[in-house]
Simulated scan of single mutants.
Amino acid sequence: MASSLVMAGCGEPAAEASASVDPYASESQSLDEGVANERRIIVYQTTSLQLYTVDKKGKDVLLAQRSGVPMVSPDGRQVAYAKLPDTWNAGDPVEHAELHVFDSKSGKSERLTRGHDDAEPIWTPDGRNLLFQSTRRTGMASLWKVRVGGNGLEQVTNEGLVRNAAGYIPNPVSSTEAQWAPTERRIIVYSTTSLTNGDVRVIDFDRQLDVEKSYSLGQGYSPRWTEQGTVVFSQNNGGQVTFVEVSVD
């Protein structure tokens, strides 16, 4: 059974654990009353999209027969993932998916949503909420939010709109493409495409995770924040790739 695994130290680059790895694990440390306490969560996904965790005894525990990309919480203690039907295969449309959160301390998974196509979870920087994508809930591809524990489910973008109407906000191409700003932790940047020109967008949220403003930074892909708070992204111009740096208000 082929699989992928990586461990990431808090504030340090990821270290490979095998010849072919993907970033589905996290390690972090904190101080409690002057004593260093290590917190570690390890999850990995096989090539058939089975999702496993490794418990405290080093035993592999199956979390889902099929799942989307697992997203580790900011404190490294939890993993959010979209649980797909057991018969789902890569390339199939996602018509049914439910959000789950696995907690390393309790060793249990909790279902947050059900009955729709809820996928692509994104942790908020405080680790208290998740943003996710759904189309079937309203018939419009939109971002939604839910608190860890399953309360506070609300639509965040495109409420009452039709596609391409004024105010319409396209979804990120995937949860891994969305990045929170390093200084202002209520702003995300993302692209609507991967490895080809699409819309590079910014969403500015208030403290309740409601949208204050959203706008485009231009056409491109693979945006990332810099330490200075600017955004750098790639742009394909007739086969030539250039890099664009933009200030974000």
Rank of each mutant, 00 (worst) to 15 (best):
A19M: 00
A19F: 04
S20F: 07
D22S: 13
P23W: 00
A25F: 05
A25W: 05
S30H: 13
S30W: 09
S30K: 12
D32H: 13
D32M: 14
D32E: 15
E33H: 13
E33A: 14
G34W: 05
G34I: 08
N37L: 15
E38Q: 12
E38H: 11
R39E: 13
R39K: 14
R39G: 15
Y44E: 05
Y44C: 09
T46S: 15
T47N: 13
S48N: 15
S48G: 14
L49M: 14
L49V: 05
T53M: 10
T53H: 12
V54C: 01
D55G: 01
D55R: 02
D55E: 02
K56C: 08
K56S: 13
D60K: 04
L62A: 06
L63Y: 08
L63F: 08
G68P: 07
G68D: 12
G68I: 06
V69Q: 10
P70I: 01
P70V: 01
M71C: 00
M71K: 05
M71G: 00
S73T: 01
R77T: 15
Q78S: 12
Q78V: 04
V79H: 04
V79D: 08
A80K: 01
Y81C: 10
A82S: 15
D86V: 07
D86A: 13
T87V: 09
W88L: 14
A90P: 04
A90F: 14
A90R: 11
A90L: 15
G91F: 11
D92M: 15
P93Y: 08
P93I: 09
P93E: 12
V94D: 08
E95R: 13
E95V: 11
E95G: 15
H96D: 13
E98R: 08
E98I: 06
L99T: 04
H100P: 01
V101D: 01
V101R: 01
D103I: 02
S104G: 06
S104F: 11
S104P: 00
S106D: 07
G107E: 02
E110W: 00
R111M: 15
T113P: 03
T113E: 07
R114I: 06
G115P: 05
G115H: 05
H116L: 14
I122D: 05
T124M: 10
T124S: 14
D126F: 06
G127S: 07
G127M: 06
R128Y: 00
L130G: 07
L131Y: 02
L131H: 05
F132H: 04
Q133A: 08
R136A: 11
R137Y: 03
G139V: 08
M140F: 06
A141L: 11
L143A: 05
L143M: 08
W144T: 02
K145T: 14
K145H: 11
V146S: 04
V146T: 08
V146P: 03
G149L: 02
G150T: 03
N151H: 01
N151A: 09
N151L: 05
G152R: 01
G152Q: 07
L153P: 11
E154D: 12
E154G: 01
Q155S: 02
V156Y: 09
T157W: 01
T157E: 05
T157S: 11
N158E: 10
E159N: 10
E159F: 03
E159T: 11
